[in-house]
């Protein structure tokens, strides 16, 4: 891992971009990384474009400014690509991961200025099938690990299982649904 790794999450208000950043940071913490997770606080409206951020490092992180040039951009809602420039500031050799049922090639055509690697996964469908509702942020964690190799997948899965077991003692179906959705996204994500 490079000295400092920065991620920008794009979502819409209510979609769980902030939660995704927190979940990912928590998983990274479990692997002994130093982490930050923080949202961009604007007007809080359902459906409005929102951003959240992660920093990961093997060393303590002292930076406390916004993330301007991320290594990875994660897009929870593909319709955002039509309205905002999700590649803004993204590093030259950066990575984009998009929640969509489209192939990477199709999305690449929509982002002609982006030359890095683009991954897609249908996290919305996965979450609907595995969790019974559309919560794309949890499966995106699995896809993000596949796309970046930032964390050890097996260890992350084990760690998440432990945390979910603690939180949802009385609802084992929630635990299995989450774990299955992360596994599926890890397997089904495609990169080009």
């Amino acid at each position: 891992m490079e000295k400092l790794f920065e991620i920008r999450w794009h979502g819409r208000g209510g979609q769980g971009a902030k939660t995704a950043a927190i979940l990912f940071a928590d998983a990274a913490l479990g692997e002994g990384k130093y982490i930050q997770a923080f949202p961009e606080y604007g007007p809080e409206r359902m459906g409005a474009p929102v951003q959240a951020f992660n920093r990961l490092s093997d060393e303590p992180i002292t930076l406390h400014c916004g993330v301007d040039s991320p290594d990875v951009v994660v897009v929870l809602d593909p319709s955002l690509i039509e309205t905002i420039d999700v590649t803004q500031g993204l590093k030259q050799n950066g990575v984009i991961l998009i929640n969509t049922n489209q192939e990477p090639k199709v999305m690449k055509d929509k982002l002609p200025n982006f030359g890095g690697k683009l991954w897609t996964v249908d996290a919305s469908t996965i979450s609907k099938q595995e969790l019974g509702q559309e919560i794309p942020n949890t499966p995106m964690l699995g896809a993000l690990i596949k796309a970046t190799n930032l964390l050890n997948f097996e260890r992350m899965l084990e760690d998440t299982h432990k945390k979910l077991t603690k939180k949802f003692k009385s609802k084992p179906e929630v635990i299995d649904g989450n774990i299955n959705s992360i596994k599926r996204a890890y397997q089904e994500v495609k990169g080009e």
Partner: peptide, 10 residues
């Protein structure tokens, strides 16, 4: 405010 209060870190 927000930078530390609402930002999660190790």
């Amino acid at each position: 405010g927000f930078i530390i209060s609402h930002g999660m870190e190790s």
